[in-house]
Simulated scan of single mutants.
Amino acid sequence: MSNIDFETAVKQEEAYLRRVHPTPEDIPACMKLFDDFLSCNILGVQFKSLYRYGHMSVCGHKLDEFKFCMSIKGLHPEEKRDAWIRRRAEWWARRRLEKSSEDIWDFRTEPLKDYPPARTDNSRPSATIG
């Protein structure tokens, strides 16, 4: 778990997203988001999710992204970009700060000592020809 607060994480994510999406044309169009939603619901994707995870793919968040895009469609392009970046930054900040299945792993900063163990001559398998 990170030691930073939510607003700091949002600001970090916003700074990153502003570099990745420098102009209003760089954010996804509403039709792209609608296509993502439809693609999530196709039979192949649903079967893959059922096979891998034991449940159907959940596509509600993709529909929410499309609806949000439609709700800001009337804004000036720069305001639209700012609203989209803020929403994405909050989403990424929540992902970074909330519990995850990855929380059980500690990031290793240096290799384990004496690993892998040193091999001795008698530990090598003998080659038999037969």
Results as ranks from 00 to 15, higher is better:
K48V: 12
I129C: 00
T109H: 05
N41D: 14
V20P: 00
E98S: 10
R124V: 03
K99F: 06
S39R: 11
R86D: 13
T8D: 14
K113F: 04
D64L: 06
S126N: 02
T23K: 07
W91E: 15
N3Y: 08
Q12V: 10
R81V: 08
A127T: 02
S49H: 12
S57R: 07
D5L: 10
Y51C: 05
D103F: 00
K32A: 14
R87V: 05
R18N: 11
P111M: 04
N122Y: 00
R88K: 15
I129D: 04
L38Y: 06
R86H: 11
L75G: 05
A29K: 12
K11P: 02
C40F: 06
L112Q: 05
M31P: 02
M31E: 15
K11S: 11
E90I: 04
E7N: 13
D114N: 07
K113P: 04
V20Y: 01
R18E: 13
N41L: 15
V20R: 05
H21R: 08
P77W: 12
L38H: 08
E98L: 08
D36I: 09
T8Y: 04
D36W: 06
N41E: 15
K32E: 15
S49G: 08
R19K: 13
T8R: 06
E65C: 00
A9S: 14
R87T: 07
N41M: 14
R88Q: 15
F68D: 13
I85E: 07
E14F: 00
V45H: 09
S2V: 12
K48G: 14
R19E: 14
R86Q: 13
D106T: 14
R96D: 10
N122R: 00
K48C: 11
E7M: 10
D121K: 02
E65I: 00
W105S: 01
G74F: 05
E102Q: 02
L97Q: 05
L17N: 03
R87G: 05
R119G: 03
E78T: 12
P111W: 03
L112P: 01
E90Y: 01
E90L: 02
R96C: 04
N3M: 13
N41P: 03
D106F: 01
D36H: 07
E98V: 07
Y16R: 11
K62A: 09
R95M: 10
S49F: 06
S101L: 04
G44Y: 05
K99L: 12
T120M: 03
F34P: 00
W92C: 10
E98M: 05
E65W: 01
Y51W: 04
L33F: 09
G130L: 05
R19P: 00
Y53K: 06
H55D: 09
K80M: 15
V45E: 14
F37G: 05
E102S: 05
Y16I: 13
E98R: 10
